[in-house]
Write a protein that binds this DNA or RNA. Structure first.
Length: 256
DNA sequence: ATGCCCGGAACGTCCGGA
């Protein structure tokens, strides 16, 4: 079972690249982030024609997440519990082939002296509480998405320059570690413990991609049952090199 | 010290992204 995550930065602009990647990589599940469209404007027909079931949590212009699966999506949950006043479309969850899978678009949190940073940290605490509840269900779990956290300096092309950034701040990394301490496993790091310079995001600015100035911020966090089944993990840099690319590229894992 | 590059909304130029 192949499970992947990809921040597409507008599903409308990325539709040709998305359809190509589905045909080529053939994931059983793909978690999308930053679809940047209302649920009713999602390209349902084009995706379903490729043999995928679709669940969407959209909003106008910003954010938005979705789950695509080659098997039925069961018991879909829209939104992260813990704040009924939160209008931002950043979370969707469903069961696919017995695996509980979430698509997560965690807040960026910059600038750190604005209210965006405490919003990020509060969102991460809500995620921690919900992940703890999911882990108590004793079913395979995969929390997939754009976490907007570089877990360690080895995940950053210039750790000094990013030391004060919301993606690298101690508070963000501590909240990420709190997720791991629940019993979740960073799939990429589990399979590639010593890897340096394996990124999932390269900024559009400053020629970041040709210089390989990247960050690893897209993660697959697996519960114990899924981790026991973990066979392989990869980052597919191909889509980032295309014309009209997203600034993120897909991360995938294979469960036995 | 600041903008660089993108997409969306909208039609001038700003917001948000990371």
């Amino acid at each position: 079972m192949k499970i992947a995550t990809w921040n597409v930065n507008s599903v409308k602009m990325r539709l040709p690249a998305l359809l190509d990647w589905l045909d080529q990589a053939r994931p059983d599940v793909l978690a999308l982030q930053e679809i940047k469209c209302r649920t009713e404007d999602f390209p349902w027909m084009e995706i379903e024609a490729r043999g995928y079931a679709v669940a969407v949590q959209g909003q106008k212009a910003y954010n938005g997440v979705a789950l695509l699966a080659r098997a039925p999506l069961e018991a879909v949950r829209h939104g992260l519990p813990g704040d009924d006043g939160d209008e931002q479309a950043r979370y969707i969850e469903a069961t696919i082939l017995g695996v509980r899978v979430a698509s997560i678009y965690l807040p960026n949190g910059n600038p750190t002296d604005s209210d965006k940073f405490p919003y990020k940290l509060a969102w991460m605490e809500r995620l921690r509480r919900h992940a703890a509840a999911l882990l108590r269900q004793d079913q395979p779990l995969a929390l997939c998405g754009d976490y907007n956290v570089c877990p360690s300096d080895t995940d950053v092309y210039d750790p000094v320059a990013f030391a004060g950034d919301a993606l690298c701040r101690a508070e963000s990394r501590g909240a990420f570690r709190a997720l791991l301490h629940l019993g979740l496993t960073d799939a990429f790091r589990a399979r590639h413990p010593e890897a340096v310079g394996r990124y999932s995001f390269w900024d559009y600015q400053n020629r970041a991609w040709p210089q390989d100035h990247g960050l690893r911020i897209d993660h697959l966090l697996l519960g114990p049952e899924a981790t026991d089944r973990l066979a392989e993990v990869g980052i597919d840099r191909g889509p980032r090199g295309r014309d009209k690319a997203s600034d993120h590229t897909p991360v995938w894992c294979e469960l036995l």
